[in-house]
Design a binder for these strands. Structure first.
Length: 292
DNA sequence: ATGCCATCAGAATGATGA
């Protein structure tokens, strides 16, 4: 079973490339970030014609997360418990977003679904903007709330095959930062606070791709020829619980998707899991031969 | 110091991104 995450940077601009990639690679479940649209604006037909169902969480032209899956998705969660908001205090039209425990508007950055025995999240971690910016403390608070939830989910079911997939907007190690415009001690994505926060997700979840793909970036800025110079960053991760990690049989970062016409600035990160290692009914349900 | 390039909304001398 093939599972992937991809910050698509506008699904309306990119859906042709995304659906083509899904079909070519026989992907079962894709977590998308930065769809940059509301559900009614999402190009659902292109996905459905290719055999994919969709779950979409989009509030406006910013952020937005979604899942495309060949298999039924249940227990859909938009956001997580005590997720903080950001922006100007709720008033008028913004009230449709709801508000976080800090009284600020919620953003479309987290979507959870259950597929078989798997619990999967598509996550778009706040950027941070600058170390002194209010967006930076939002980023850390948002991640702390996510970690608290993660620990609670696994306390309730230590055997849960859980994956937190998405754009984490953190380069956890020095080798993950190849963009010279990011300065240690000055820039977001490489600060000690962000790296400590990322590290604090252990031992609940761990990066299931890095052991198999030790090197490589997942993002290259459009500006300044970052891709041809290979000045990228590794910031997109599939973080799996122990039960999930134990079932991983392969992984890849599809660097080629940064090439060609109108690419996203991020590329897909992929892992393969063996459903039989989860037990339960998952194997029976998904190892059935395809019938056309 | 800034733009670099890309996206969206809507008409900005914009906002956001990482």
């Amino acid at each position: 079973m093939r599972i992937a995450t991809w910050n698509v940077n506008s699904i309306r601009t990119r859906y042709g490339r995304v659906v083509d990639w899904l079909v070519r690679n026989d992907v079962d479940v894709l977590a998308m970030q930065e769809i940059k649209c509301k559900p009614e604006q999402f190009p659902v037909e292109a996905f459905e014609q290719a055999g994919y169902q969709l779950e979409i969480h989009g509030l406006n032209q910013w952020n937005g997360v979604a899942f495309a899956s060949k298999h039924e998705m249940t227990e859909v969660s938009r956001g997580f418990d005590a997720m903080p908001g950001f922006g100007k205090p709720i008033k008028g039209q913004e009230a449709v977003q709801g508000e976080g425990p800090n009284g600020l508007p919620l953003e479309a950055r987290a979507l959870g679904v259950t597929v078989g025995d798997l619990r999967l999240w598509s996550l778009y971690v706040p950027n941070g903007r600058g170390l002194e910016d209010p967006h930076f403390s939002y980023k850390l608070a948002w991640l702390e709330a996510l970690r608290t939830n993660t620990e609670a989910w696994l306390a309730e079911d230590p055997e849960l095959p859980l994956a937190l997939m998405g754009d984490w907007n953190i380069a956890p190690f020095d080798a993950d930062m190849g963009d010279p415009s990011f300065t240690p001690g000055v820039s977001t994505h490489v600060s000690a606070e962000e790296r400590a926060m990322f590290a604090s997700f252990a031992p609940s979840v761990s990066d299931v791709v890095r052991p198999i793909v030790p090197e490589g970036y997942t993002f290259w800025d459009y500006k300044a020829g970052r891709f041809p110079k290979n000045e990228g960053m590794r910031i997109d991760f599939i973080m799996g619980s122990e039960a999930f990690a134990d079932a991983v049989t392969g992984a890849s970062i599809d660097r080629d998707e940064r090439k060609g016409d109108a690419p996203s600035d991020h590329v897909p990160v992929v892992c393969d899991v063996d459903p039989s290692l989860f037990g339960g009914t998952f194997e029976d349900e998904y190892d059935r031969p395809m019938v056309f």
